[in-house]
Design a binder for these strands. Structure first.
Length: 589
RNA sequence: GGACCUGUGGUGCAGCUCGGAGUGCACGCCGGCCUGUCAAGCCGGAGGUCGCGGGUUCAAAUCCCGUCAGGUCCGCCA
């Protein structure tokens, strides 16, 4: 995988004269003082002991001529002389493999008890154990690489934003509850007992106020907090590069973001990023069944709506019919599993046609009784399916049919993606709303401050689901890296959208009155973006979970095995906050 | 809220289908030997509430129910 931070070795100070990574460049015979941790000890009797000393820049073999009490992972300081290794004993697997340190002193600065987990990079260790002893887990070279790669990305992003004229402004962590959107973490107020701050899901509203304040170009490496269930790519708290600019178009915003992403790729990978492409939301859904498609492998969906129109086949009659060709003859039991999976994703069923041979056309399918032969033939032809392949088809609404097959496509084909390949592109023209809630009100696809497409403004009241938005996502290797939009900056339009969302003027004023107020005083047109740094770093490093890029992450149930957080607190602590715990356990509703 | 996988000396696993003594492997740890190894090697040793609770059975790591924890996914994530 990529080497993070190649070649950067800090100036030594304090107890050390050199970092281990710089040793190959210094002349033999030079005296050095090295500090680090004892990685391995190899004893050959009393008068020859090899000690591998490791710091974050590398590892070197130290030759000790007398036995002493040594424990693995003790913090140690070695003084001695750099020496060429005797011929035949060089280790080509180590950058320092042609030299060794002839040790004059070896001090144990911090002895180490036997370790509760192995520190070799390639050893699997249970996640709980890793997090329980995170400070040891982080000592592993891979985690050191990850932390340092993340620091390099942060630095590169700051540089990229500064050179593009953006101003870093910090916004409050103690913010006001905004009940739209993600579930929020609440913080009880001591000075106003019974009232609560909330931790921000993002600095969205704050940065819009900064635009009204005349900041013009804002950015921040911002911590965001959302009290939603955790995933491999989601933690309660995560970090975004957040930015916003005034008097700009979405193309300006996207150009700024592209520069930042390219700087981050350079910082970690040491090479240029591939060109950043662009597709519409509709195309992403139609071809890959996802608004964040992984395009590093094929298996594109096929539109069978025309082929099946007026066919009279009930199982394949719906507004939209999508198909996916799998490059193997799936077994009956596998197809049953896939059908179950498709149902669990919310569709009625999964149709399948297995092409057993092409000449003569022999197809297996439970639908052969109801689908005429010529229709089967044209269906197979439309899909371009060959002998030995299986066609999966779903008939439903456009979104349900494509996203169900898109999920199956991922599960069946993801292994084909080359992990080191980077595929980065914009997804544009999202719908403004993604459906209706139980009261029949539209649900914002992005957030309620997103500017509708100018051409679709007339549809807002009567056909809200057809309204496109001026929003754009950035997708990288099948992960949603971030999203942004042009914002509503006019009070009348914002009030209109709140009304369409079903918020009465009273409620809108209560929750967002301060924002609507601000729009009355010369709000500039503005737009911005935010993308997840945890995810960006994970992708650039080839890690599959953002936990690997975070120093102290939580488990999937939101706990921290190292500190034991979250913990109950004493009622005497809660009383001044105006808080009393009513339900200790067994209930979350 | 739901689905699936996992839980066995400090670590990683096998054993579980077909119930029969805590049986096995690798790493680590402790002791001994060893002057050119490099994930050193050789010899010896210690170390277990088979996650927890209940049930079935003459007998449970193994079968059943519940529960807790870790992971992945669905819902959720403006």
């Amino acid at each position: 995988m990529a080497e993070a931070n190649p070649g950067i070795t800090p100036q030594p100070m304090g107890l050390r004269s050199h970092y281990i990574g710089s040793l190959p460049e210094i002349p033999t015979g030079e005296s050095v003082a090295l500090c680090g941790w004892i990685a391995h000890v190899r004893e050959h009797g009393e008068h020859l002991v090899f000690v591998d000393l490791r710091d974050h820049t590398g590892m070197v073999q130290c030759v000790v001529a007398h036995r002493s009490q040594l424990s693995v992972e003790a913090a140690a300081r070695v003084t001695g002389v750099v020496d060429r290794r005797p011929p035949g004993t060089e280790n080509p697997n180590l950058p320092t493999g042609s030299i060794e340190i002839r040790v004059s002193t070896l001090e144990i600065l911090g002895p180490a008890a036997p370790l509760p987990l192995p520190l070799e990079d390639d050893r699997d260790v249970d996640e709980y154990t890793r997090l329980r002893w995170r400070y040891l887990d982080l000592r592993r070279p891979r985690m050191q690489r990850n932390l340092r790669a993340r620091a390099a990305v942060n630095a590169a992003l700051r540089r990229a934003m500064e050179t593009q004229g953006f101003v870093e402004v910090e916004t409050p962590l103690l913010w006001t509850p905004t009940p739209e959107g993600a579930r929020e973490f609440l913080v009880p107020s001591r000075t106003q007992p019974g009232a609560f701050y909330s931790l921000p899901q993002s600095p969205q509203i704050a940065k819009q106020l900064l635009m009204i304040a005349g900041v013009d170009r804002y950015y921040q490496i911002a911590r965001c907090l959302r009290d939603e269930d955790l995933r491999a790519d989601r933690q309660f708290e995560f970090t975004q590069l957040d930015l916003e600019a005034s008097f700009v178009t979405q193309h300006d915003v996207r150009r700024v973001v592209s520069h930042a992403i390219q700087a981050a790729v350079r910082a970690v990978r040491g090479h240029e990023a591939p060109p950043i492409g662009e597709i519409t939301w509709r195309e992403a859904m139609a071809r890959w069944g996802s608004d964040k498609p992984d395009r590093r492998f094929g298996m594109e969906l096929i539109d069978l709506s025309e082929t099946m129109r007026d066919s009279g086949v009930r199982a394949l009659s719906a507004p939209y019919v999508a198909a996916l060709v799998v490059n193997e003859p799936l077994s009956r039991s596998r197809l049953d599993e896939l059908t179950k999976r498709a149902r669990s994703l919310g569709v009625q069923g999964l149709a399948w046609f297995r092409v057993d041979s092409t000449d003569p056309l022999a197809v297996s399918s439970p639908l052969l009784r109801v689908v005429p032969g010529e229709l089967v033939a044209s269906l197979v032809a439309t899909c371009g399916a060959r002998a030995g392949q299986t066609i999966l088809a779903v008939a439903d609404t456009f979104v349900r049919a494509t996203s169900t097959l898109g999920q199956l496509r991922l599960e069946l084909g993801r292994h084909q993606a080359r992990p080191e390949e980077l595929d980065i592109f914009w997804v544009t023209d999202f719908p403004l709303f993604e459906g209706l809630d139980e009261d029949g009100n539209p649900i914002p696809a992005h957030h309620p401050f997103t500017m509708p497409h100018e051409d679709d403004l007339d549809l807002l009241e009567h056909e809200p689901l057809r309204v496109r938005s001026q929003s754009y996502d950035l997708v990288m290797n099948g992960w949603e890296l971030g999203s942004g939009s042009m914002r509503v900056h006019r009070q009348d339009l914002q009030a209109r959208i709140f009304r369409i969302l079903g918020l009465t003027p009273q409620i809108a004023a209560e929750r967002f009155g301060f924002l609507l107020d601000a729009f009355r005083y010369g709000a500039p047109p503005h737009g911005g973006f935010a993308f997840g740094i945890d995810r960006l770093v994970a992708i650039l490093l080839g890690e599959e979970a953002i936990r690997e890029t975070i120093a102290f992450p939580k488990t999937s149930s939101g706990q921290d095995p190292l500190t034991g957080a979250p913990k109950p607190v004493d009622p005497s602590v809660l009383a001044p906050l105006g808080v009393r715990v009513a339900v200790l356990r067994g209930s979350t509703s």
